Amino acid sequence: MDLAELTARLHAIRDRNDWRQFHSPKNLAMAASVEMAELVEIFQWLSEAQSRQLAPAQLAHAGQEVGDIVLYLLLLCSELGIDLEQAVRAKLADSERRFAP
């Protein structure tokens, strides 16, 4: 996944639609949270077993919501100057240290 290319494509959509005025870090974080809630809604009331065996339509819907979340996080990182790949690698390394056997 080329994050720079994805971010550039997102910026093109944003700029073409004059959405930059709405893309403050606060708004982007809230939008990502709303999309996460939409993902959670797919699993609401499912059993543990059902949540692991989504119907094809549910799985496709979950994928769309995951995509929305990632895209909002890319925009948020862009606005804040966060290198998403570096942030993820640093967090993973921290988890490996903290939770090593």
Rank of each mutant, 00 (worst) to 15 (best):
E35K: 13
D2Y: 14
Q64L: 08
A55L: 08
R98F: 06
E48Y: 08
G67W: 00
E41Q: 15
K26V: 12
S51M: 04
R16K: 12
Q21I: 04
S51P: 10
A4V: 15
L10W: 05
A8F: 05
S47Y: 06
G81V: 00
A32Y: 07
L10R: 02
A60H: 09
T7H: 08
N27E: 11
L39S: 00
Q21Y: 04
A87R: 10
E41N: 15
A37H: 10
D15N: 07
V40W: 08
D15Y: 03
A49N: 04
W19M: 15
Q44S: 10
R9H: 07
R20F: 06
L76C: 04
W19V: 04
R20G: 15
E79R: 15
S47P: 00
P25N: 14
A87V: 05
R20H: 09
Q53S: 08
L84K: 04
A32H: 07
S95N: 15
L3Q: 15
S47A: 10
A32R: 14
L92Y: 04
N27D: 11
C77N: 11
L46S: 01
A31C: 02
A32C: 11
L46W: 03
S47I: 03
Q64C: 02
A37Y: 06
T7W: 01
A32G: 08
K91H: 03
S47L: 08
L3R: 12
D2W: 14
A31P: 01
C77G: 15
L10M: 09
E38A: 02
A93M: 01
Y72G: 07
E65S: 00
L76D: 01
V88A: 06
P56F: 01
D94G: 03
Q50K: 05
K91L: 11
A29P: 04
D2E: 10
V88Q: 07
L73R: 04
E85A: 14
A12Y: 02
V66W: 13
D18Q: 09
R20L: 10
W45I: 12
G67Y: 00
R98H: 07
P25H: 14
A32T: 00
V40R: 12
D68N: 08
N17H: 14
S47V: 00
E85W: 08
N17M: 12
K91E: 02
L54C: 02
D15A: 04
P101D: 04
L6H: 07
N27Y: 11
S51R: 03
S47G: 11
L59K: 12
A37Q: 09
V40P: 02
I42G: 13
H61V: 00
A57D: 06
A100R: 03
I13R: 14
M1T: 05
P101L: 02
Q53V: 03
E5C: 02
I69L: 08
S78K: 11
A32I: 13
A31F: 05
Q86I: 08
Q53N: 14
L39Y: 06
A8S: 12
D94I: 00
S33Q: 10
L92T: 13
Q53H: 05
V34R: 04
H61T: 07
E41C: 11
W45P: 02
T7Y: 02
A12N: 05
H23D: 15
L73V: 06
L75I: 03
A55F: 11
D68G: 15
E41W: 15
D83F: 03
D15V: 06
L6V: 12
A37K: 06
A100T: 08
F43D: 10
R97P: 00
M1R: 15
P101Y: 01
R9I: 05
Q86D: 09
E38H: 07
I13S: 06
V70D: 06
